[in-house]
Design a protein around this nucleic acid. Structure first.
Lengths: 245, 245
DNA sequence: CGAAATATTGAAGTTATTCAACTGGAGTGG
DNA sequence: CCACTCCAGTTGAATAACTTCAATATTTCG
C-alpha cells in the first residue's frame, strides 16, 4: 500500500515513532517533536519474531518492554508448574512485558502465533527518559492502568456462562481488529480452539459447540479459523441476558 | 503494644510515613529522609471509612489514590450495568484506585467491609512529585506492575474447579494476613460467603459446601466467619492435584 | 431481644466436561 | 498428482460439577 511506503520513508528522514501508525496508542503519545526524537533513539526498532518463537520466557530477566507493530502473539502462564494457561492475546498497539516490572522477572511466556514485528524498548532507558519527560511518564502510567482495567475485564468472565464468555471474546476481538484497521466483521482467528478455551476457562470442545450454536442462531458464520460476525448487535446483547449471579 | 506507640510518637515529631508500619510496602519505599518528608506533606493522612461506606464509586473522578492503613475493603464492578461482581479484597498495605489512571474515572466501587483507615494520596501531587523523585516513580511503577500480576493470578482461577479456587483464596488470604502481622492460621473473614462466591465465580451455596467438605477432610475448621487452617500444607497441595485443563 | 441477614444442607435440574468416534484440511513424500 | 499422515475441529453420549430451589439453622446488629 502506498501510504505505508510513504510513512516508512518519512521514518528514515526524521523519527521512526513519528511515522509509526501506532503513535497515538503507544508510549510516545503526546510527546513533542524533540522528546519524540529522544524516545526514538532509545528504542531498538523492529525485532522480528517468527511464528512459534518466544519473545520472552517465564522467569527470564526484564530487559525490555515490547510494543507490537504487526502480527499476533499470546502470553501464557503456568498454573501449578504444570498446566499452561493462556493469559492474553496481543496485537498491534499492545505493550508487552509490564508484568515483569515488579520483580524484574517475566511472569509470562510470550509467543508469536504468527510472524510478528515488535518494537523493543529497553526498560532502564525508558525509566531514565521518563524522568526528563513528564508526558512520557504519564502515558506510561496510563498504559499500565489500562492493563489493570483490561485484566479486571477478564475477571468478569468468572461470573459468565460459556456462551457469554465466547460472545465477550468475539466482540472484544472484533473491536480490537477494527481499531487496527482490520475488518471487525471478518475475524481471522490466529489461535486454536484450544487456546481460546484456555483463555476463557473452557474446554476446546465447548468452544466448538458454542460456535456451532451461535451459527445456528444466525449470530456468526464459522469457516474454520475464519469467523464472520453476522449480527453484532445480538452478539453484544448476549452477555447481559442471563440474570444469574 | 509498646513499639507501636513509640512509632506514633516519632511520627508526630518528624514524618508520618517514616513512622508508618507500611513504609516498606508502600509508595515511599526506598525514599531518603528528605524525599520522605516531601511525600509526607503531600498526603492527607488518615481518612476514615465507616463499614458499608464507599471510598469511591464507579465513574467518579480520580482525585486520589488510597493506601490502606487498617481495616478491610472490597472493590466491585458491574458486569452488564446490572450484576455486581467483587473484583478484590483489600487490606493493610494495598494501594487502591490505580485502575482509574487510564481514563481519569474509577472503574470500581470501593467499599469498606469494616471500619477502615486509609491514607489519601492526591494523584496530581503524586505525579508531580514523582518527576522530582525517581525512587518514588520506580516504586510506583513496581506497585502498578504487581497489581497486574495479581490480576493475572485471578485469571488462573478460570482454569480451576471450585475446591481449587477456594483453596487458592484461603491460602492467599492466609499469606496476606501473615504479612500484616495477623495470624495466618486463624482467618477472620470479613466478607460474606456471597462475596467470596462473587469473587471466585461460584454461588454462595457452593462456597458453603466446599468449606464443609474441606472441614470433613481435616484441612480447615469452620466457625462461621472464623476459619482455622489446620493443615496448610495439604491445603496448598490442593491446587495442582487435578490434572484437568 | 428480635427481626433481618447470612449460612448450611438436601434434592433436583442444568451446564460444562470427558471420552470417543469421526471429519476435514495442510503439508509431505512417493 | 495422489495417497498418507497429522493435527485441528466437530459432534454425540455419558458423566461430573456446579447451580437452583427450598427448607432450616445460625449469626449479626439495631
Amino acid at each position: 500500500m502506498a501510504p505505508r511506503a510513504i510513512r516508512i520513508r518519512a521514518a528514515q528522514v526524521q523519527s521512526a515513532c513519528a511515522s509509526c501508525s501506532l503513535q497515538e496508542l503507544c508510549l510516545p503519545a503526546g510527546l513533542n517533536e524533540d522528546d519524540l526524537g529522544r524516545f526514538d533513539s532509545l528504542i531498538n526498532r523492529s525485532r522480528q519474531v517468527k511464528r512459534g518463537d518466544y519473545l520472552y520466557r517465564i522467569a527470564g530477566p526484564l530487559q525490555s518492554l515490547y510494543a507490537v507493530r504487526s502480527g499476533f502473539l499470546k502470553s501464557s502462564m503456568l498454573v501449578d508448574d504444570r498446566r499452561k494457561q493462556v493469559a492474553g492475546f496481543h496485537m498491534m498497539g499492545d505493550l508487552l512485558g509490564v508484568g515483569a516490572i515488579g520483580t524484574g522477572k517475566h511472569q509470562c511466556d510470550a509467543a508469536a502465533l504468527e510472524d510478528s514485528d515488535v518494537c523493543e524498548i529497553p526498560f532502564q532507558g525508558l525509566e531514565d527518559l521518563s524522568r526528563d519527560v513528564p508526558a512520557l511518564q504519564r502515558q506510561f502510567n496510563r498504559l499500565m492502568s489500562r492493563e489493570i482495567v483490561r485484566d479486571h475485564g477478564v475477571m468478569l468472565l468468572l461470573g459468565m456462562c460459556a456462551e457469554e464468555r465466547l460472545a465477550v471474546f468475539l466482540v472484544n476481538l472484533s473491536q480490537r481488529y477494527s481499531a487496527c484497521g482490520d475488518s471487525g466483521t471478518q475475524l481471522n482467528l490466529r489461535m486454536t480452539r484450544d487456546e481460546i478455551g484456555s483463555y476463557l476457562g473452557l474446554k476446546f470442545e465447548t468452544i466448538s459447540r458454542e460456535l456451532s450454536r451461535m451459527q445456528k442462531k444466525g449470530l456468526i458464520r464459522v469457516k474454520g479459523k475464519n469467523i464472520e460476525i453476522e449480527d453484532p448487535k445480538r452478539l453484544r446483547e448476549l452477555f447481559g441476558e442471563h440474570t444469574n449471579r
